[in-house]
Design a protein around this nucleic acid. Structure first.
Length: 112
DNA sequence: TCAGTGACGCACA
DNA sequence: CTGTGCGCCACTG
């Protein structure tokens, strides 16, 4: 298992319930800036393998990455709503549920 | 080795 | 709002 993969797992696991983060944010937090695609790749490869909150990872614009109506899409929407995340038209307001305010400093230890 | 294909992201028209 | 293009890189045939 690669170190980068472990970092990705750790970053995803750090997202609290009821909140979301983008693939890019996770990649950056895992020390892999610009490699958002790798996050998606890893989550796909290890889907079901580890009990990760993969549903809390979205595209940078707040959209669900899966094709609308697909199996994964419905599952992700279901899980997010179950956590109180407001999903409208397959998209979430990162403004309200993203890690972009002050919460990322608390949980991810970002500098001031 | 090369080319195609993604659970991405961003700039631009 | 919709596309298109390019950067990114692991994986696969």
């Amino acid at each position: 298992m690669k170190e980068s993969y472990l970092n990705i797992f750790h970053a995803v696991a750090a997202i609290p319930a009821g909140r979301v983060a983008s693939y890019g944010q996770i990649a950056a937090r895992a020390g892999l800036p610009g490699r958002a695609r790798m996050v998606g790749h890893v989550l796909g490869q290890h889907a079901g393998g580890a009990p990760l909150p993969w549903h809390r990872v979205l595209c940078a614009d707040g959209r669900i990455a899966f094709a609308s109506g697909s199996r994964g899409y419905r599952e992700q929407v279901r899980r997010l709503k179950a956590e109180g995340v407001d999903v409208r038209n397959g998209r979430i307001r990162m403004q309200d549920f993203g890690m972009d305010h002050d919460l990322d400093r608390e949980l991810w230890g970002m500098p001031d």
